[in-house]
Design a protein around this nucleic acid. Structure first.
Length: 573
RNA sequence: CGGGGUAUAGCGCAGUUUGGCUAGCGCGUCUGCCUUGGGAGCAGAAGGUCGCAGGUUCAAAUCCUGCUACCCCGACCA
């Protein structure tokens, strides 16, 4: 490709809106252009990268016996009504009507579509297991797109679905998919991707993993140790609590002190000597009373999972009072746990002599002890958020807090969709059984952005050769001087004939602007031809991301470059 | 959905407070000359519904009302 013809201008200054590295460089380098909030066009070099990412994904999906299909972006609402998700999924599902007033939607994920396909094509256990995948545009009406390609509304995703006759078979395949994902991210050149246990959320199912590209701009919080990896939603720690002899329960006047800090400060205690009351209401307007030690935060995901509810909102004061508690001074004391759902964190049960509310304005109690003072019928479990430095549940070492970009995820779905949508097969006894499913996603555009987040310098992205828009760049300095254009053209032709992807900067720009542009395009190998180098019958070789360059003899250089490229490519096979 | 911000040439901005000549500047683009190792120089040129719609006024980029789009923080989120 000749740079003089390449569409997509480079921009010298950072776009004012872009905050993250990948967003800045994708815009500045001419990879993407915004069209609307969270909706982007891909320019030629951006598209090239995406194609290479997709190729790697295809190879690995095919390697675990995947079969590629393509399902529609636009789907009839009926299909989603079958699974129940037409109602259960919120406004991020874009719903609309066609000219006949038929309810339609834009697919944000394709479980329904793939089940529709599978239930008619697969009818016998002899056809199973099977895995179908596609690389398709998806649409989610995100509340707040951000950070360029990290969170968008329209995006390309590889989604795969496997179908099995047994949980064992699913689990075995799940491991294969997990391994395939590790290969994919390695081949994409991501330096730091961790697979973590995660909460399966609206997808249903039990076991799931998220693949997180560790990056400061990541939206998700993850906790890591040498042996443990989990996201904030499900992470737990080996918390240790200290018991001491229970002291006499004592009512204390705490006028106007409602928050943990205020109460603890007023009484000269620490937050960990207090009990915190948090009230929620679930989707059925049921009041939930969560209690946790004052130095912890309630993890709503854990609480939801414990209660088996989908939605939790903070309860209003009227509801709290109606239950007999006093906002700001609430505790389980004297409440009837058979009427209110009370969930108590282990930290409360494990601690002694806590300060808790008296369920009376301006009063607290000192020396609350779980065994003695907690009403009967409460549920005790772990509903705490892990904090940085909490002890790892496996090794005991302090957990590290990191930010991650979710680039992929895998779920053991089970029969949630197949049962709801009659996706069944006949087993060897002639009995109709729902297929057991797994699903496996990778965000393609998000992966491109994530590679930048993990591989860049002050001048632009440093692409791994496996997904770089071109493998080699030729820069011709002073092309009007005798021999330069000829030499550059010759090298361009020779490399092209050898099957190497070359971007040839034939524009005759000043060296400074040429190098700056080259840095923004981030091609791993750069060869510079100028009157200076040709004087010595040499060509300069510079590796993207490395300061020093080396001179190489022009004679026979094409074959040497081919070797370099092949060797580098081998790193990503 | 809550809070904040922005909208003037392809990009980045000034001008708006205090209404007033033909709406400017830098970068980029085009032409010519010159120049060529980290974004040169000279000369010339093109490029604007000042986000949209109303209103006030002799006069609106500027004041008023409504709307829209985009960005940031939060809520939300396979």
């Amino acid at each position: 490709m000749r740079m003089s013809k390449l569409v997509g201008r480079r921009i010298k200054e950072d776009p004012k809106d872009a905050k993250t590295v990948s967003h800045k460089y994708l815009i500045r380098g001419g990879y993407i252009r915004p069209v609307s909030t969270g909706i982007y066009s891909l320019l030629p070099i951006g598209k090239k990268i995406i194609q290479k990412i997709e190729k790697i994904i295809r190879e690995e999906m095919d390697a675990i016996d995947g079969q590629e299909v393509l399902m529609p972006v636009v789907l009839p609402a009926e299909l989603w009504e079958e699974s129940g998700r037409y109602k259960s999924v919120g406004p991020e599902l874009l719903r609309f009507k066609d000219r006949n007033e038929k309810a339609m939607l834009l697919g944000m994920t394709h479980e329904e579509a793939v089940v529709h396909l599978t239930r008619t094509e697969i009818t016998s256990y002899k056809q199973l297991p099977v895995m179908l995948y596609q690389i398709q545009t998806k649409y989610r009406d995100e509340a707040r797109p951000r950070a360029g390609l990290i969170r968008v509304r329209e995006f390309t995703m590889k989604d795969a679905y496997s179908f099995h006759t047994s949980q064992e078979c699913l689990e075995k395949y799940y491991e294969k998919a997990h391994a395939a994902y590790e290969r994919i991210f390695k081949r994409l050149g991501m330096r730091n991707v961790v697979s973590i246990q995660s909460n399966s959320g609206m997808m249903g199912g039990k076991v799931s993993h998220e693949f997180m590209a560790v990056a400061d701009c990541g939206e998700d919080t993850i906790f890591l140790s040498s042996k443990y990896k989990a996201n904030r939603e499900i992470a737990y720690a080996a918390w240790k609590y200290e018991k001491s002899a229970p002291l006499h329960l004592e009512k204390v006047h705490t006028p106007g002190h409602k928050t943990i800090e205020e109460v603890a400060g007023f009484l000269g205690m620490k937050a960990e000597n207090t009990g915190k009351a948090v009230f929620y209401q679930d989707e059925n307007k049921r009041l939930i009373f969560a209690m946790i030690r004052g130095d912890f935060e309630v993890n709503e995901t854990k609480l939801k999972n414990h209660l088996r509810v989908n939605e939790l909102n903070f309860a209003n004061d009227a509801m709290i009072k109606a239950a007999g508690a006093e906002p700001g001074y609430a505790s389980p004391l004297a409440l009837d746990a058979t009427k209110i759902k009370i969930v108590v964190d282990n930290s409360i049960a494990g601690s002694s002599n806590l300060i808790v509310g008296a369920n009376e304005a301006d009063w607290h109690y000192k020396n609350f002890n779980f065994e003695r003072d907690m009403p009967a019928g409460v549920e005790v479990t772990d509903i705490a958020c892990v904090r940085e430095g909490d002890p790892c549940p496996i090794t005991g070492e302090p957990l590290q807090l990191k930010k991650g970009i979710e680039v992929g995820n895998i779920f053991q779905l089970g029969t949630k969709y197949s049962a709801a949508m009659s996706c069944t097969y006949l087993n060897n006894e002639g009995k109709s059984m729902p297929m057991i499913m797994g699903c496996y996603g990778i965000g393609v555009g998000r992966s491109m952005a994530s590679v930048i987040e993990q591989s860049y310098d002050d001048y632009g992205p440093v692409w791994p050769i496996s997904i770089a828009p071109y493998q080699v760049q030729i820069c011709a300095i002073n092309p009007d001087k005798p021999g330069v254009t000829e030499a550059a053209e010759a090298l361009y032709n020779d490399l092209s004939k050898l099957g190497i992807e070359v971007l040839f900067d034939d524009r005759g720009e000043k060296p400074g602007s040429m190098f700056s542009d080259a840095d923004l395009i981030g091609i791993p190998f750069r060869f510079i031809i100028s009157p200076k180098t040709l004087e010595k019958m040499q060509i300069e070789f510079k590796r993207r991301g490395v300061k020093e360059s080396v001179m190489m003899d022009a004679q026979g250089i094409a074959c040497k470059i081919k070797e370099l490229v092949d060797k580098e490519m081998q790193l990503y096979v």
